[in-house]
């Protein structure tokens, strides 16, 4: 199929579904509860019968007990819109983009297998050419090919990217952000904008092993792949201690943000493989 997912992992994904905390109004009938009352088998509520209602939905058992005509209302099972926002800025090049693509591929597979509508929106300075939302298990190949062709380039601007995405008026759904969030402009306001647009936010914080645990020793001129900034540093004990202090503050800051906003947060990269991150998310469901 593709190098992004191996068969064994796909097999493990087969029995899992994307986890959402809220209900969303779908565009078509699907396998997921909707905020609308529908014709599925899952009971939602009763209401009084009014002329013109479908008499097949009258709850005769309730009539026997209450001697009033009431209608059974059922939850409508509709498809879920899943927006995979993949950071393709230059900072994601290499290990991080690969991890992000694999996570996105896994989530897309699960979503398409669960009859969800899955769209992919790569972003850097803005949203690039997105993969429009699509559904159906047969579309997984197209999605994986799309992911496979993503390349890391350009600076990160999460704010502009989110605005560009929202300008397309996507259906509210699951917004899964896969990024290192190393944006000089910050990540909180753009993510707030996504939530304000009725999207449920899931953050996959993707970092590289080098960022999580840099090796000490030696004098280096570190060049920022995105901005070209050159930082000369001697990787001695003091410098590493200061870096880890900053890294810890950054990670706990993102995690705390997610907690405060009710978003789900998962870290990937380093010692946490993409499979572990995906499974951790998928297993949070009921």
């Amino acid at each position: 199929m593709t190098s992004l997912l191996d068969p064994e992992f796909i097999r493990r994904l087969g029995r899992l579904r994307l986890h959402v905390q809220r209900r969303f109004a779908g565009a078509a009938g699907g396998a997921r509860r909707s905020t609308r009352k529908g014709q599925s088998v899952e009971f939602a509520d009763h209401r009084a019968y009014v002329p013109g209602d479908d008499i097949r939905r009258i709850d005769w058992n309730a009539y026997a007990r209450l001697e009033e005509l009431v209608l059974r209302l059922h939850v409508a099972e509709e498809d879920l819109s899943v927006h995979l926002l993949i950071d393709t800025s230059a900072s994601m090049a290499g290990e991080k983009l690969d991890t992000a693509r694999r996570i996105a591929a896994a989530l897309a597979y699960v979503g398409l297998a669960g009859s969800e509508r899955v769209g992919v929106a790569p972003f850097a300075e803005s949203v690039g050419a997105p993969l429009p939302p699509t559904r159906g298990r047969r579309r997984i190949g197209a999605v994986l090919r799309y992911l496979d062709e993503l390349r890391a380039d350009g600076e990160t601007s999460l704010a502009r990217s989110v605005e560009a995405l929202l300008a397309r008026r996507p259906r509210p759904g699951l917004a899964i952000v896969l990024s290192d969030l190393l944006d000089p402009g910050g990540y909180e306001r753009p993510l707030d904008r996504l939530q304000a647009a009725k999207h449920e936010l899931v953050i996959f914080h993707v970092l590289s092993q080098e960022e999580l645990a840099p090796k000490g020793g030696g004098d280096y001129a570190l060049v920022d792949r995105e901005r070209g900034v050159r930082v000369e540093v001697s990787l001695d004990e003091h410098a590493l201690r200061a870096y880890h202090k900053r890294l810890g503050a950054f990670l706990s800051g993102v995690e705390g943000y997610a907690r405060r906003r009710g978003a789900m947060y998962f870290r990937a990269g380093g010692e946490v493989s993409f499979e572990d991150a995906v499974l951790a998310y998928l297993r949070t469901g009921p």
């Binding site: 060049v223 920022d224 792949r225 930082v231 540093v233 870096y243």
Partner: peptide
């Protein structure tokens, strides 16, 4: 100095 290209130097 040995030049090393990294994703981001923000934290550094």
């Amino acid at each position: 100095r040995e030049t090393k290209v990294v994703g981001s130097t923000l934290l550094w």
